[in-house]
Design a protein around this nucleic acid. Structure first.
Length: 745
DNA sequence: CAGAATGAAAT
DNA sequence: ATTTCATTCTG
């Protein structure tokens, strides 16, 4: 039942949920990775599919798409490996114990393990990790992430742009994401409300509006007071749409438009045409993009942040304030993007967003303006530049671009896809910069003209509003672009592909993982039965090295077959190998631990006597373990006098703390008095278990609890000595801190 | 789904 | 110095 199933893991809600989706990543295994490499593309694909189904079971994860690329799971650390390997044993011994309890025991065991012994696990973990990293180069343990929503941060104030964005987003669709960023206060919204129905114009109006947007005096009027109203004379919504369309048209249909209508910006007709096209496209386009864009909204500024120059380009106001705020947020995002190289979908998305947003924004903006002004052509020109740069060598072409610095990906380039994207972005970026400059110039002028001198306030607002309208469109544009790109990608397989690839590999890994898991299960079962004896594995010491891995790789090697068909055989092989490796890890018998613990205890206590008393217990316990025990060589070492290993430095967890607080809260004092007490005493707060937090591994049943209380029967670990041992070490961290923390709080 | 543990990495 | 998350699986 338990099924260990992975399925269990909650699928996580969509990404959007407030929290991080927690996607379940595939479990990664070195073997897998290797295999992945082997797989041919085709195979991979298929595997993927299968994997998807099987693994996540949940498609929930979005697995497929890059949208969320699945993130590989972290490799297990030594301790986890150890746990994995020994948990069953523990459970065997203490059937009633729940997992947590088992974990505690495992921790204890781990603590007592000699370094040597640990080393194997450590090494393995290390290899594991290395292999993992190889497979996923940019992998970050902590995805920075997420928190997609957090947008609000910026809100605060200053950022007009942001607000602007938000607004549009709402109007358009807002849909889900919502992001709600905008929050109510945003000015744009207000404006929105203000719009008079009467005034709502038709398309033509919109067009006009768009046209004049910048120029029109009306605009000027609006500007000042409200903030981003210029379009809002009209229905904002429509306006926004219009813009979007325009933008789209510009991008999508640049060619056409250009051709058809040269510079004449004003010509509504041209615009209309463009619009039409845009519409079509829009339909096609996905909504989802929108949200993203909104999210990304702010990104723009960030770029600037990196370089002062860019800042200049941006409106002054925005520049300073926004920059700051954004910077932070951006950083995070950036980081994400960086990491990925191919990895996490989310990251990917983000990247795209950012880049696109940035570039898109500017470009869109420009486009719009241009159109309005009639300068459109210019825009076109710029693109050329972009191209140019591209040819030049993509990145290199744009030397430092602001965006680039940010990006800073470490390895990054490796992924072709990334490069492409980047290049793309960069291009935009460069163009952006230029455009920006121009734009700025123009704008100011116009503003000055129209708005006239207005007050500084006006200016500020002006700029903002300006941006705002444009921004939305941009987003869309971007989306569209994205869509296009996608298609292209599909064919070319370039862009995402790169990352995709990694994804795929992950999937493949996943698949394998599944397999391995199955293996594990079986293995576990075996172990339970007592087969473990077979494994034994003392000899393997050296085995751990790469060799073993390599071998494993070789073995399975039929990847192709694996993928599609059968797999059974192959899988079997894989399993075996994996098993071997994993099994090769030494499994220690409880006895060992007991002894050790005792030994340690002795050491710690310094009293030999005390320890002795404990010894007996262990002996009794031995019975069950005996078989295994033999395996472990170290027993001898046992006595090793290692210091304790257990140093645990972990401070009390927050949760723990809270717990204490809650419980003790007022009564904190008790604990305060003696840490030891806690341990020894069974304690207090927690659960009714007799056991205290550490001392006893919680036993569900009272009976057992009793047992625990009574040393005789208990296994060695339960021995007082053992307990004593822990307290000493942990006490500092655990309890004391806790108390303190409580106090503080 | 929380949570017990340790550790590696990131922030 | 603190947070994340990897594994396992019971309540």
């Amino acid at each position: 039942m338990k099924g260990g199933g992975r399925g269990k893991e909650p699928p996580v809600v969509g990404e959007v949920s407030g929290k991080r989706p927690k996607r379940k990543c595939l479990q990664w295994h070195p073997l897998l990775s290797k295999k992945a490499l082997d797989f041919s593309e085709e195979e991979e694909e298929e595997d993927e599919e299968e994997l998807e189904k099987v693994q996540c079971g949940g498609p929930t994860e979005e697995v497929e798409e890059d949208s969320t690329e699945q993130r590989a799971r972290r490799p297990m650390n030594a301790f986890l490996l150890f746990c994995k390997r020994h948990r069953s044993l523990v459970r065997q011994e203490h059937p009633r114990l729940d997992n947590r309890g088992a974990t505690k025991i495992l921790a204890d065991w781990w603590a007592v393990l000699e370094p040597k012994e640990k080393q194997k696990y450590t090494d393995m973990a290390k290899e594991y990790k290395d292999a993992f990293m190889k497979a996923n180069p940019g992998y970050k343990w902590c995805p920075t992430t997420n928190k997609p929503v957090k947008s609000p941060s910026c809100q605060p104030v200053s950022n007009p742009r942001k607000k602007v964005w938000s607004f549009p987003s709402n109007s358009t669709k807002d849909s889900a994401t919502a992001k709600k960023v905008p929050k109510t206060d945003s000015m744009p919204q207000l404006n929105f409300a203000m719009a008079d129905p009467t005034k709502m114009g038709g398309l033509s109006m919109l067009l006009l509006a768009g046209e004049h947007a910048l120029t029109t005096r009306e605009v000027g009027h609006c500007w000042k007071p409200p903030k981003g109203c210029y379009l809002w004379q009209i229905c904002v919504l429509s306006a926004s749409i219009l813009f979007v369309k325009m933008c789209l048209a510009s991008e999508a249909g640049k060619m056409e438009i250009t051709a058809s209508q040269p510079q004449d910006s004003s010509s509504a007709a041209s615009v209309q045409q463009a619009t039409v096209k845009a519409e079509i496209k829009e339909e096609t386009g996905d909504i989802h993009d929108f949200p993203l864009s909104s999210h990304a909204s702010l990104p723009v500024p960030p770029l600037s942040s990196s370089s002062s120059t860019s800042t200049d380009a941006i409106p002054p106001q925005l520049g300073s304030q926004n920059v700051r705020v954004k910077k932070k947020s951006k950083k995070k995002e950036v980081a994400k993007s960086n990491d990925k190289d191919g990895i996490p979908c989310s990251a990917k998305k983000i990247i795209k967003k950012c880049d696109e947003a940035e570039s898109g924004l500017d470009s869109v903006f420009n486009t719009i303006e241009a159109v309005a002004k009639g300068t459109w052509r210019d825009t076109d020109e710029k693109p050329k530049k972009k191209i140019h740069s591209n040819t030049g060598g993509g990145n290199s072409g744009l030397p430092k671009k602001k965006s680039k610095p940010k990006v800073k990906t470490p390895l990054k380039e490796k992924e072709e896809g990334m490069q492409e994207d980047r290049g793309h972005c960069e291009q935009h970026g460069s163009s952006e910069v230029e455009m920006k400059e121009e734009r700025l110039d123009d704008i100011p002028k116009k503003e000055a003209e129209e708005a006239g001198i207005r007050s500084t306030d006006v200016q500020g607002s002006m700029t903002d509003p300006h941006h705002s309208p444009s921004s939305p469109p941009q987003a869309k544009l971007k989306d569209e672009d994205r869509g296009k790109e996608r298609q292209n990608e599909a064919e070319l397989s370039t862009e995402n592909r790169g990352s995709r690839k990694s994804e795929r590999s992950c999937k493949g890994a996943l698949y394998k993982t599944l397999v391995s898991e199955g293996m594990l299960t079986s293995l576990r079962a075996n172990i339970d039965r007592g087969k473990r004896g077979a494994f034994r594995a003392p000899d393997h010491d050296a085995a751990w090295s790469d060799d073993s891995w390599t071998v494993s790789q070789m073995g399975p090697n039929n990847p192709k077959k694996l993928k599609k068909c059968k797999s059974k055989d192959d899988l079997g092989k894989l399993e075996e190998e994996f098993e071997k490796k994993f099994n090769s890890l030494p499994q220690y018998s409880p006895m060992t631990f007991d002894k050790k613990s005792t030994a340690v205890a002795k050491k710690k206590k310094t009293d030999s006597s005390a320890s002795d008393s404990t010894m007996p217990d262990s002996a009794s316990k031995a019975k069950s373990c005996a078989p295994i025990a033999t395996m472990c060589p170290d027993v001898q070492g046992t006595t090793s006098m290692e210091m304790l290993v257990g140093s645990q430095k972990r401070k009390a967890r927050k949760s723990k703390i809270t717990h204490l607080v809650r419980t003790a809260d007022g009564s904190v004092s008790p604990a305060e008095g003696e840490d030891q007490t806690l341990f020894d005493l069974h304690e207090p707060l927690p659960k009714q278990n007799l056991c205290n937090e550490k001392g006893c591994y919680s036993n569900p049943r009272p009976e057992e609890a009793e047992r625990s209380a009574v040393p005789q029967e208990l296994p060695a670990f339960f021995s007082l000595a053992a307990l004593a041992e822990r307290p000493g070490q942990k006490k500092d961290l655990g309890q004391t801190p806790v108390l303190i923390s409580c106090a503080d709080q």
